[in-house]
Structure formats: structure tokens, C-alpha cells
Design a protein around this nucleic acid. Structure first.
Length: 899
DNA sequence: TGGTACTGG
DNA sequence: GTGTCCCAGTACCAT
């Protein structure tokens, strides 16, 4: 019969290993209370990976009791060179012990002894009692305990791989020696990490040779007189005391005065009732999903505000949809949950691969057959029926995808993606499963878990597998609708959702599907000109450098400039010399620098804007169809991808030419651009209530000049110098960003002291701006979040952080987000009103693009006068602020000409 | 995949 | 005495 098993785990060494294995991501593993969890995650995985399959009879996790042990009594500097344990790890030790207990494993520590000695002692006891003993540790010195009945598992490469040390592997590793010899080797060579000396000048090789010859340190000294006179003999004689002490320090005790016996170590298995709340406290989503999939009920979190809802009935009632059971679907007349799966992220080009429709009451129906949607089918009727409310995930993606299938989505009541984002902009993950987990619902997996990622991405071939996942997604959407909408109401965000974000979804879907026409010929012409220009610059640079190199490699460029050519490096980055514009411009009038800066600008225009844009023009309609990400930014702005049409060059003429390629889709149409003038500063004037700032806008003054007059004390009867105005402009923007004197001085090239004075003067001149800055930070500290005029919320968990850096950043964010976010609110409202006005007036013009404070339209020439009026009026009356909103419009044959 | 460079508001 | 101005996306190199 097989021996009973005893598992001994070295808590401290594995906690350290787990912590440092994920040290790069330490700030990504933080629970909702700010507790770091990287070591907990790693340790938990280790326990799962070892204890679950092992199912030992007895198990123990041993911990170090404190800093001082009998070893420090023998040698003051024992482990004396260790850095202080990081606080991020220290805070995890208590929950680590709790976690061990919840896994049904005994946790034990003993004053004056290290975890090693507890393990050594219990290993011997177990061995004598007839157990097969396994030790798990991150410390290879533990292999000294190996015997026929004791195996030592040592983690390597972080904690992902484990070596299993048996007597045979010890012999292999130590060139034929046995476990008992390890302390002899350590005694001679010492240990830098535990900081004991060994004998100076004796390394691993010599130590091994000596122990092979003499068996142990004491035996070696018995024969020391027989050694030939040599440097080495001298070292051994002089180091005798150190060697014996080091040997003693290295020796793991097997007779520590432990107060536990083997009977105390019975392995009980996980305490599911209590480990679930523990995982919830740590935000261990993946563990909770695993348990939910095993059939355990995950109760609603007590740190969640969704606490009124019970997810306990999460049984999926799924049927494969066929023409035969289609009549069941027709009975879905109230509210339906609908989900359409695509095989890629870009929904302008991705293919639908399956869908599911249903609800909790009537069950769910799924199919791969997209024809069932398109035909004159009941499903199409439901999706288009304005009386049936739809619960979905990502209404914009769904609208565009259905539009491609000839289906018009109506009456979306709940969009899980959008609502999650509005509730907490940090939940900007676009995976349904992950978002459900964030909202304490675990009966659904992430796409990555089901489909894989990258090259391994694959839709399951088995119907049951795909339909299960789709059904669980639809059910998650349906079950989360009520609690999350309630939460929106509690946050006073229902208006933001119903009146702004949800209607905007449809408008963005329309803009994206419409696309903007790109004149490929125009771009191709630019491409050949830029190629030529680039090759000239390249030759010039090679001549100036004296040899060829890769100009686009910051690393090679750094060597050329600061080593080969001998210029003085002004700044370093993590990876080497900085070659940023800022640095290069400071180098003065150096010919190669001018060439490099020009090269980089041209290369950017060519690769990103000419060739990049050409790559994404659709062959079918010669248009680009961007995707606006409505649920990504922390402030409420949109972002634009594939391609990004919000950063098309404008500041430099060569880049600005790109805009000539953006043209109307019809002959005799024109481009209209309409932009808000200084919207953020107007928002600042409004929300701070500062009378001086408001007066400047109400009187229609040039705001930067007005600020210049105030901070540089320019009399009314004198003109404002251009340079002064430029500095004032930087101050105006800086204030919005929460500037420091350091930042301003760098920006406008004055001394730090001067910058400080300028900022102080600004605050004297606009006193309510200062008051507001202070009060918004105070309010963020109290509430944990800041808000825009439309109640868009941004949480600032770091606002009370101890780390200066993190806290300062949160403070600047507290000032900037309400301003940038309110400006985003305003243009979103304007977009909705403009689109409604266009439809009401029966105009053919199309709204095509949004660039934060600017809207771009294509317009039949004969509608232009009317549209220009309409847009201008609608935009400036989008909201009523304490200052007027000013809109400027421009018309042209292309986006370039609309300036 | 992360860092550095460029682009925009 | 900390590092020190907000919000974004894409291309390229080096690992």
C-alpha cells in the first residue's frame, strides 16, 4: 500500500517568489480597497496547482515568525544585506495566512525559528511516522532535507516551473554528492543572499572538490595538516571559524521546539462557504468564475451597490433555433436580450458567426445561421419593432453590424457596455464576461477564455459550446439590466444615459457606417513626393553622420549623436539616450539635428497618414469607416480607431495637405467644419463662477490677450505683445491641466521662480478659479470622484494616496476632468441636436466626423447656407452656460479647404 | 510587448 | 524632497 502523504509548504519563500514574479505589474493587482494582491494571486495559483491534484493527508504552510531568530543571535549580519521587505508585500502576509487556512491547510509559525526549521522538524517527524513527505519551497538550500522519503520541490523562473529534488537529482546537481553535503558546501562558499561569509576566496567549484574529498568541514580540518602548503590551505586555516559558523547557519534544524504534532496537520480541503467572500474581498474574478462554473453560488458582494439583486438563478435554458421552433421566438413581445457574435473587432468588416435571442422567462434561442436574421424573419421583426425593448451589449457595434445585414435596430433599453462605463469609467474593458465579473456576476466566461486570443483565436466548432457561451452572455445582459439601471439612477446618471449617451450611440453608428470619402489619388501623389523627400533627407543625414544607420531607431540615433559625433547628451531615458524633440531642440543649431527632426516628421506623415490611411480605405465605396470608442476615455471624450481620424495633421503645412484627401462623397457637395472656440476655457469660466474670466468672454475679448493684460499688467491703452500673449495662452491651458511652476517654466522658457510668480498672479486676478481648484480637490477627497455638468463621473482612488506622485496626479485630474468632460458633454448634446435638426429640416447633409470640439459635415452646395446657420445655432445653444458659446464655421471643397 | 517617437484636441 | 500639464492612437524598434 502507498504511504500516507505529508505536504510541507515554505510560506515565506514562496510569497516572495510570487511577489517578485509579478513585480512589474504590482500596481495592476490591487483590490477595491487598495490592497496589493500580486503575491496572493501567485500563491493562490500555486496552492491550486499543487494541493488540489496532490490531495495530501497532512499539510502545513510554515511562516517566519519575525526578523530575529536564533541565527541572528549567532551572527548579527545574518540576512543583513536584504532590502527592507516592500510594504506592498508586507500588507499581503496577513491575508496570505488567512487564505491558507481557508484552503483547509494548517498555518504555523514559531518564535525564534525560520519557516525552514519548522519544515525540517516536521519532515523528520513525518518520515519517522511512515509518511511520504513533499516540501515545496522557493529556496534551493532546502534540498539538504532530501531523503528516500522526502522530496523537495523548488520553484524556478518565478513560480511557473518546479524542479523535483530526489536523492538522484541532488546527486546529479551536486556532482555525485548527497543532501547532507549541501550544508558543508554552503559552509565553505557562503551565501550572499543570506549574507553569511563562508571562507573568503573559496567558491562553488573549490567547495565541491574539497567536500568530495573530505566528506565534511570538520573532517576536512582533521586532515588539514596533511594538505600541501598553498594559498588555499592558508585560506582554509584562517577561515575555520567562519566556515564552521556558516555551516551552522546553513543547517536547517530538525529539532525545533514546535508545539504542533502531525495530527494537527490533517488536510481539510477548501472551506467554500468562507473562501468565496474572501475571493470577493480580494477581487479574484477568475477564481470566482471557476467556482461559479463548478456550481457554487456567488452571493452579491457587500462592497457592491447592486446589493438588491439576486443572481442565484443562473441556469441557462438554451435551445438551438430552427425554422421549426421559430414561432416560440415570435412570442417574445416584451423585452428581449439579444447578442450577435462577430469574428473580429472591426465590425465594419468582421463576419457575424452566431446570435442568441431570448429572455429569462421564455428561454434563449441561438443559431449560427445568420440567414435566420436577415430573411423576412420574426427575429428581424422583433429587432425592428419599436414596442419590444432590447437589452444588448454594445448597441453601436450591434447597430452597425445589423445595418450591414439590412436590419435596423430600435428601442435599446439597456446597453451593458455603455452603462458599465458610465457607472465607472475604469470599467472600460470591452469584454462582456470581464464586465459582468466587475459587476459581481460570474456565470459567464470571457471571450479569451472561450475563444483564445491572437493566432489561437477560434470559434468553437461544437454547437453546444458556442451556444452555451452566447446564451450565457445574453443571460448576463438580461440579469444585469435592472440592478445596473438602478445604480445609474442612484448616481443621478439616468439622464446622462437616456438623453445623451444612448441617443449618441445611434448617431455615431450612422456616422461610422456613412464613412468619409478619401481621394486615394491625392494620397498616392503625396506618397511619391514624400518618398523622394525622405530619401534626400536620408542621404543628407548619412553624410552628416559619416555613415549609414537606422534613423528611426532611437537607440542607434543616440549612439550616432552622443558617441560617434560627441554631442553632450542632455537627458536619458530608461533605455538609453533621449532623442526627443525637446532634447534635440535644446542642442542648438546643429545641421544633423534639423535634418533628423524633418526626417521624423516626414516619415510620420508618410507611414501613418498616407500609407496607413490608404490601407484602411474600403474598396467598395472608397471611404474610410472609423470606429468611435464611446466607452474608453476617462473623461467622456470619444476616441477614434481604425483609422484614428481625430489626429489628422493640421499644425504643419506638409501634414495638413493630408486633409486635401478628405472630400465629399458627391460632386457639387462641400465640406463644412464647425468648431467651438475655446470651449474648455469657457467651461472653466462657467464652473468656477469667476467674474473676471466670465467678463472676458461676455465682452467678447481675446481671452489670451485678456489674461496677458492681467498677469503681465499691460495697461488698457497699450497693445499686448505677441510673445506675452503666447505665454498667457500657455498659462490658460496650463491652468486647465493643473499645471506646476516646473511645467510652465519648461513650456514657456522662463525660470521656475518666474513661472511661480506668473501662476500666483493668475490666481490673484482670477480668484474664483483658485477657490474652485481647491474645492474640487476637497470634494474629490470626500466623495472619491468628480463630476461633469452632465453628471459624468470619474473616480479618483489615488486622491488620498500616500505616494506623492500618485496623489498629485489625482489632484490634477480632479481639476482637469470636470472641464474636459463637460466640454465632451456639450459637444455630444450638440451632435444629438444637430442630427435631429438636419432630419427635421429634411436636409441631405451628413454629419461625418467629430474631433473633440469640432464637427465635420458633407453638404450639398445648395443646402450649405441653411446648414451652416443650423449647425452654428444648434451648437451654440446646446447648453446654457454663464458665458456664451462661440462657434466658427468654415467651408471648402475638401477638409483642407474648410479652414 | 513595452518604450519612444510622432500626431491631434 | 518627491517629479512635476490633461486626454487620446499609430508606427517603429528592440526585446
Amino acid at each position: 500500500m502507498a504511504k500516507p502523504t505529508l505536504l510541507l509548504i515554505d510560506g515565506n519563500s514562496l510569497a516572495f517568489r510570487a511577489f517578485y514574479a509579478l513585480i512589474n505589474q504590482v500596481d495592476r493587482f490591487v483590490n477595491h480597497e487598495g490592497l496589493h494582491t500580486n503575491a496572493l494571486v501567485g500563491f493562490n495559483n500555486l496552492i491550486d496547482g499543487i494541493v488540489d491534484p496532490f490531495q495530501p493527508d497532512l499539510a502545513l504552510v510554515a511562516w517566519d515568525a519575525g526578523k530575529t531568530t536564533f541565527r541572528t543571535g549567532k551572527f548579527d549580519n545574518y540576512k543583513g544585506n536584504r532590502d527592507k521587505t516592500p510594504l506592498e508585500l508586507v500588507e499581503q502576509f496577513e491575508p496570505l495566512r488567512e487564505m491558507v487556512t481557508l484552503h483547509g491547510i494548517k498555518s504555523y509559525e514559531l518564535a525564534d525559528y525560520e519557516a525552514d526549521d519548522i519544515i525540517g522538524t516536521m519532515a523528520r517527524k513525518g518520515e519517522q511516522a511512515g509518511y511520504a513527505v513533499t516540501i515545496v519551497t522557493g529556496d534551493r538550500d532546502m534540498t539538504q532535507l532530501v531523503s528516500n522519503d522526502v522530496t523537495v520541490w523548488v520553484t524556478k523562473k518565478g513560480i511557473s516551473e518546479i524542479d523535483h529534488y530526489t536523492p538522484a537529482l541532488v546527486a546529479e546537481t551536486y556532482d555525485g554528492l548527497q543532501a547532507k553535503h549541501i550544508i558543508e558546501i554552503k559552509g565553505l562558499q557562503g551565501d550572499t543572499s543570506d549574507n553569511y561569509p563562508g571562507i573568503a576566496g573559496i567558491g562553488p567549484k573549490t567547495a565541491l572538490k574539497l567536500i568530495k574529498q573530505y566528506n565534511s568541514i570538520p573532517e576536512m580540518y582533521e586532515h588539514i595538516d596533511e594538505m600541501k602548503t598553498s594559498k588555499q590551505k592558508e585560506k582554509l586555516i584562517n577561515g575555520k571559524e567562519d566556515a564552521l559558523m556558516s555551516r551552522d547557519l546553513a543547517r536547517i534544524r530538525t529539532d525545533a521546539p514546535v508545539t504542533i504534532s502531525l495530527e494537527d496537520l490533517a488536510y481539510k480541503g477548501p472551506d467554500y462557504e468562507n473562501i468565496i467572500p474572501f475571493y470577493q474581498h480580494l477581487d479574484f474574478k477568475a477564481q470566482l468564475v471557476k467556482l461559479a462554473n463548478q456550481g457554487y453560488t456567488i452571493p452579491t458582494n457587500n462592497h457592491s451597490e447592486a446589493g438588491t439583486f439576486n443572481f442565484s438563478n443562473t441556469t441557462l435554458n438554451m435551445t438551438k433555433l430552427t425554422n421549426a421552433n421559430m414561432d416560440h421566438v415570435s412570442q417574445l413581445t416584451d423585452t428581449v436580450d439579444f447578442y450577435l457574435e462577430l469574428d473580429g473587432a472591426n465590425y465594419h468588416t468582421a463576419n457575424p458567426v452566431g446570435f442568441v435571442i431570448g429572455n429569462q422567462a421564455k428561454g434563449y434561442f441561438a443559431s449560427r445561421d445568420i440567414e435566420l436574421l436577415v430573411q423576412d424573419s420574426p427575429i428581424k421583426n422583433i429587432l425592428e419593432n419599436t414596442n419590444v425593448a432590447k437589452n444588448v451589449f454594445n448597441a453601436k457595434e450591434l447597430s452597425v453590424s445589423l445595418h450591414r445585414l439590412g436590419v435596423t435596430l430600435t428601442n435599446v433599453q439597456f446597453d451593458l457596455l455603455l452603462v458599465s462605463y458610465l457607472l465607472d469609467t475604469n470599467d472600460n474593458n470591452d469584454d462582456l464576461g470581464a464586465l459582468a465579473h466587475d459587476n459581481d456576476y460570474y456565470a459567464v466566461q470571457t471571450d479569451e477564455e472561450v475563444y483564445g486570443k491572437g493566432a489561437k483565436f477560434a470559434i468553437p466548432e461544437v454547437d453546444a459550446d458556442l451556444f452555451e457561451h452566447l446564451g450565457r452572455k445574453a443571460m448576463a445582459i438580461g440579469l444585469l439590466a435592472e440592478p445596473l439601471l438602478k445604480k445609474l439612477t442612484d448616481h443621478a446618471q439616468l439622464d446622462l444615459y437616456r438623453d445623451i449617451e444612448l441617443p449618441l450611440t445611434q448617431i455615431l453608428a450612422r456616422m461610422e457606417a456613412m464613412g468619409i470619402t478619401v481621394d486615394a489619388q491625392q494620397l498616392l501623389q503625396m506618397d511619391s513626393k514624400l518618398t523622394e523627400r525622405l530619401s534626400e533627407l536620408e542621404q543628407t543625414i548619412y553624410q552628416q553622420a559619416g555613415h549609414e544607420f537606422n534613423i528611426q531607431s532611437p537607440k542607434q540615433l543616440g549612439v550616432v549623436l552622443f558617441e560617434d559625433m560627441g554631442y553632450t547628451p542632455l537627458k536619458k531615458t530608461k533605455t538609453g539616450y533621449s532623442t526627443s524633440v525637446e532634447v534635440l531642440e535644446k542642442m542648438g543649431d546643429v545641421p544633423i539635428v534639423a535634418s533628423i527632426l524633418a526626417y521624423r516628421q516626414i516619415a510620420k506623415i508618410k507611414s501613418t497618414y498616407v500609407e496607413g490611411l490608404l490601407r484602411v480605405v474600403h474598396g467598395s465605396d472608397s471611404k474610410v469607416h472609423t470606429r468611435y470608442l464611446q466607452t474608453l476615455t476617462q473623461t467622456g471624450r470619444l476616441s477614434s480607431v481604425d483609422p484614428n481620424l481625430q489626429n489628422i495633421p493640421v499644425r504643419i503645412e506638409e501634414g495638413r495637405q493630408i486633409r486635401k484627401a478628405f472630400v465629399p462623397s458627391e460632386p457639387d457637395w462641400q465640406i463644412l467644419s464647425a468648431d467651438y472656440s475655446q470651449i474648455e476655457l469657457r467651461v472653466l469660466a462657467h464652473i468656477t463662477g469667476d467674474a473676471n474670466l466670465q467678463a472676458a468672454f461676455i465682452n467678447g475679448e481675446d481671452i489670451h490677450a485678456a489674461t496677458a493684460r492681467r498677469i503681465f499688467d499691460v495697461p488698457d491703452d497699450q497693445p499686448v505683445d505677441g510673445n506675452i500673449r503666447r505665454q498667457a495662452k500657455a498659462v490658460n491651458f496650463g491652468i486647465v491641466y493643473g499645471i506646476s511652476d516646473f511645467g510652465l517654466s519648461k513650456n514657456i522658457g522662463v525660470s521656475r521662480q518666474q513661472a511661480k510668480t506668473i501662476i500666483e498672479t493668475y490666481f490673484e486676478q482670477y480668484p474664483d478659479v483658485k477657490k474652485w481648484s481647491e474645492s474640487i480637490i476637497a470634494s474629490a477627497r470626500e466623495n472619491g470622484y468628480v463630476e461633469t455638468i452632465a453628471h459624468r463621473r470619474r473616480y479618483l482612488p489615488d486622491i488620498n494616496a500616500k505616494r506623492f506622485n500618485a496623489r498629485s496626479f489625482a489632484e490634477r485630474t480632479a481639476m482637469n476632468s470636470p472641464i474636459q468632460g463637460s466640454a465632451a458633454d456639450i459637444i455630444k448634446i450638440a451632435m444629438i441636436n444637430v442630427q435631429a435638426a438636419i432630419e427635421k429640416a429634411g436636409l441631405k447633409a451628413n454629419m461625418l466626423l467629430q474631433v473633440h470640439d469640432e464637427l465635420i459635415f458633407e453638404v450639398p452646395t445648395d443646402e450649405m447656407a441653411e446648414l451652416e446657420q443650423l449647425v452654428s445655432k444648434t451648437m451654440d445653444s446646446a447648453v446654457q452656460l454663464a458665458v456664451p458659446l462661440l462657434v466658427s464655421t468654415h467651408i471648402g471643397a475638401s477638409w483642407y479647404d474648410a479652414k
